[in-house]
Amino acid sequence: MTTPSIDLKQYIRGIPDFPKPGILFYDISTLMRNADAWQIAMGRLTAAVAPWSVDVLAAIESRGFLTAAPLASRLGCGLVMLRKPGKLPGETISYDYDLEYGKDSLHIQADAIVPGQRVVVMDDLLATGGTLAASIALLRKVGAEVVGAATLIELTGLGGRDRLDVPVKTLVAYDD
């Protein structure tokens, strides 16, 4: 199955100085609200991820939920959420990691993954790779076989892909 050859960048809005001065934020809400472009994006992600024979998609809070939910439905696989502390009910397992200016933590429900399940990590954007790398480490901690990572957008100039030891699929790349 092929998808029409449109440039998805024309549906992604750049917002300067958000969330702080000097940052150019790539807003996927403009992509999501265009039904045709969103369907094409999901079709392309499906084609990119399907060869990995995924059991479960692991969605990173919160914009990763937006891409992973429709993709899991298309692939016929499960979906688990990776969230900030205090957001998941029941017993959770955490992974603490360093950010450029501080620390953060990701959590997964203790029973979310059956050891050995093939998992792909999903987020909206790959920048420096810190959150994706932490997600992969957390998933391995609970016994997942992480077979890849996928995002809508990659900021190639920040080198995030180099921090990851799994294959990465992205739909749109920006050099800045």
Rank of each mutant, 00 (worst) to 15 (best):
W38G: 02
G159M: 14
V54P: 00
I108R: 04
S62F: 13
T128G: 12
K169S: 15
L79T: 05
G129W: 07
V146C: 07
D55F: 08
D111G: 02
Y97F: 11
I108H: 02
I136T: 04
A110C: 12
R74H: 14
A144Y: 00
V49P: 01
S62K: 06
L24Q: 11
S135R: 00
R74P: 12
S29A: 10
Y26S: 11
L45P: 05
P85N: 05
S53D: 15
R163H: 04
H107F: 13
A173L: 02
T46A: 11
D123N: 05
A50K: 03
V168S: 02
A144L: 06
G160A: 08
I153C: 15
I113N: 04
V168A: 07
I28H: 00
V80S: 01
V168M: 11
A50P: 02
A68V: 09
T131Q: 09
I28V: 14
M122A: 07
S53R: 06
V56K: 01
T2C: 15
L66M: 13
P19Y: 15
G116D: 00
G130P: 09
A48V: 00
D162C: 03
S105P: 09
C77Y: 08
A48I: 03
D7F: 09
Y26D: 10
I12M: 12
S5H: 14
H107E: 14
A68Q: 07
N34E: 15
Q117R: 03
I28W: 07
G143L: 05
V49F: 02
G148V: 03
L75C: 10
D111C: 06
S135V: 04
I40A: 09
G160I: 05
P70L: 08
D98T: 13
G116N: 03
D7N: 12
M81P: 02
A149V: 09
V119K: 03
I60L: 09
A37P: 01
I93M: 11
Y101A: 10
K103M: 14
I40R: 01
L106E: 01
G64H: 08
V120I: 15
I153T: 12
Y95V: 04
A68T: 06
L138M: 00
I28F: 12
D176S: 14
M122L: 15
L8T: 08
Y97R: 04
P167L: 15
Q117P: 00
A137T: 06
L126E: 08
L88H: 05
G86L: 12
A68K: 03
G116R: 01
P51A: 11
S94W: 04
E61R: 02
S105K: 13
L139V: 03
T2W: 15
D96R: 10
